[in-house]
Each structure stands twice: as C-alpha cells, then as structure tokens.
Design a protein around this nucleic acid. Sequence first.
DNA 1: TGGTTTTTTTACCGCTTGGTAAATTCAGAG
DNA 2: CTCTGAATTTACCAAGCGGTAAAAAAACCA
Lengths: 214, 214
Amino acid sequence: MAQRPTSEDAAPPAKPSRIQTRNRALILEAALDVFAQEGYRGATLDQIATGAGLSKPNILYYFNGKEEIHVTLLNQLMDRWLDPMRQIDPHGVPLDELLRYVARKLQMSREYPRESRLFANEILQGAPRMGPHLETGLKPLVDRTAAVIQGWIDAGQLAPTEPRHLIFSIWATTQHYADFEVQVSVLDNSPTRDATAEAFLCTLYTRMLSPEGH
Amino acid sequence: MAQRPTSEDAAPPAKPSRIQTRNRALILEAALDVFAQEGYRGATLDQIATGAGLSKPNILYYFNGKEEIHVTLLNQLMDRWLDPMRQIDPHGVPLDELLRYVARKLQMSREYPRESRLFANEILQGAPRMGPHLETGLKPLVDRTAAVIQGWIDAGQLAPTEPRHLIFSIWATTQHYADFEVQVSVLDNSPTRDATAEAFLCTLYTRMLSPEGH
DNA sequence: TGGTTTTTTTACCGCTTGGTAAATTCAGAG
DNA sequence: CTCTGAATTTACCAAGCGGTAAAAAAACCA
C-alpha cells in the first residue's frame, strides 16, 4: 500500500522524493494561477491538473483535496506577504523605513500579482480558510508595527497620524495595482506606469509623513 | 403563450406589472448578497432563490440566466458608482472638491459594501462581464476628471502630482474598508473606526494636495 | 362569473464537479 | 534483472449545478 506523501499523521515524515517535490511544486504553481483568477469556488481541479500537466486523480494523490491545495498556498503566502513589514527597523530613520516599506510592498504587487489576488479573493469572501491566520500571524505584527510608528510620532520624527490606518492605506494603494490591474490598465496604459506609480506613492507618503518644517 | 417579462426583443416593452417589479427587485437584492460574498462562479441560483424567497425556476422566469442577473447588477452598479466623481465641480475650490470626493467614496464604502465587493470580484477576475463598461463608461469620466485636476495643478491651486494615480489611490484607500472589511475588523475593532478612517483620509489628502506655503 | 394571461410549482435533464477504487506503469535498490 | 514500493492512469461515482417543459395555480379583466 502506498504511503501518501502528503503526510500530517504522527508517523515518520520521511523526506519527499524528487518526484514528490517537483510535482507538488508543479501543482501549487498551477493552482496559484487558477485560484488567483477564478477564486476558490470558481477554480476546478481539472483546470489545475491541466495547468500542472498531470491528471486529476494524480493531483489528489499529492493533496487530500481542493481545500488542502488552497490552504497550502495561503500558508506559504502568509510568510512572504508579511516579510516586508517585518523588515521595518524600529531604530532606522522613520520616513526612510516607511518609504522603503511602501516600495517593497509595491514591488511585491508587481512581482507577485497572483499572490496578491489570491489573498484579495480570500479576504473578500470573509477569509473562511484563513481566519486564525489573521489573528495569530497578522495581528501581532501589525500591533507591534503600529506601536513603533506611534513611538516615532511621539518623538516628533513623523507628522502625527493614526498608525493602523496608515498601514491600511499603504496596503490598499500598493495592492491596488495588482488586484485591479485590469482597471488600471484601461485607464493608464503608459509604458512608464510602474515608475510613475512608485514616484506617486513616494510623494504621497513623504508629504503625509514629513514632520512639520519639512 | 406567456410573454417573458425580461424583454430585449424588438417587440413593445410593455410596462412591468407590480409583481414583476417586486420580484425582480427581490431577486437582484438577494443576488447582490450572494455574488458579493461568493463571486460569480461561487454563487448558485439556489442560494439566490432561497434568499429571494422564490423557487429556482421562478427566478429563471424573470431572468434568462445566472449571467443576466449578474450583468444587470453590474449595470445598475456602474451608475451609482461613478456618481461621486461626476459631482466633482471643475469650478469649485480644488482641495474642497477632492476632499468631498474622498468623503463621498468613503461613505459609499460604508453604505454599499456589497456593491463594492461585487465590483472588486468582477475586476479581480479580469472584468469578463464588464470589459466594455470600463472603456465606454469609466474611461471617459476618468480622463475628464484627470484633466480637471491637472488644470488645478497647473493653476497652482494644488500641489503637483499625477492625477490618474491620485484617483487610483482614492479608490484604493476608500474601497479598502469595504473590500477588506474582515481584515480591517481584526486589526481595528474600535467603535470609532469609521470616524477615524475619515479623519485619516482627510489628513492624508490634505497634506498631499495642499499647495506649498501650508 | 368565466375565460385569459401571468405567475408559480413539479418533475426533470444533461453536464460538471470533487473525489474514489483499483488496476497499471514506473523508478530505484539489491 | 528482479522485486517492491511509489507514481500514474482508467474507469467510475454521487452530488450539485444551470437550465427546461409542462402542468398547476393565481391574478386579472370582461
């Protein structure tokens, strides 16, 4: 009897073979495409199978079901997604730190638009498969970052503002370019769009955050 | 033979009966709920039927199919959605006009979160049922508004910036509160969130747009 | 009231979906 | 080469889906 490679039993994990590693990666890659564009319910295992170049039952040999694929993607995503915020240095120059955070988030929108849309889809639908993650992964980090920003403000190094809503606005403005790409493309098809977006956001948050007397 | 009320034949339109008016509204109301939360493919006619208190075949008596319900909602939405931008007065005080635009968009996020999510879902999936609308409805209005803003900037009444990306940022920051409500709720469950959000955005765009010399 | 049209229900259908069982092929260790 | 376990395919379901036909009921109008 074949031992299913997607183990979460207490039994010995047993390191995955090269085939397992390759095919699981193939499946997740294809699934990211499909889930990001169609949403969870809109995505089908057949689409994922075709995209991965495997048969549907073969996919279910590597994952216990559609939901497990989705959850796996979401878990992988969370790490990468929160990284830019973790890199904010409480001891750095406040405005520089925040502008670099904006730049990193914008870069992620550009380099990983599928991940951004996957996340947006999940949140839009009420985060049914990610609820705990928000509380245990996201919230502590945001609380900590908000405190850091508040400290900077109290020290007069940033113009006063509400840290949490500042964070929301950074997320919103940067992810917008990935999540609403179709709309943005229709309204601005200039070849320099990316650079213009970056310059705009840099200006926006510089003016917003520079302490008085610039 | 019953004449189907959802007419698009060249035949006389014939004004709808009270029952037709009421049931079509019931269906659209329920469909808005379902489409906004589940996305197009995730929504089922059974859910819509249950929500409307009608049977599934009865729903298909009023609409030719699932897609027609969705398109109808999208069409109705477009009007209401673009209205705040249409209200921008080229002859008003620039900063006031834009701050009032922000406030109106934020208010719509608060009052019509389902519409916001319906729209977000559609754009996320590549606007498959709204492509033309973007070109013919949205683009001209945005072009016009961007020109108005550029005029204000050229006249020295606003700090210089890129008008289109300014518009994008206003959309992103305001709609974020509706589209990512679950996430926002986890991170900020303060009872004054709405007021704080409005104050934050007012500050953000005041600092961004005020011409130099305070 | 009776007849006509609109509205609603009942009973389906064909297709797609996520998922399974079991046979088959393949890869690798000896 | 051979044997064994891993990997893959073939052939299926059962449930849910959007949608239809036609009969039944309700509303309307003379």
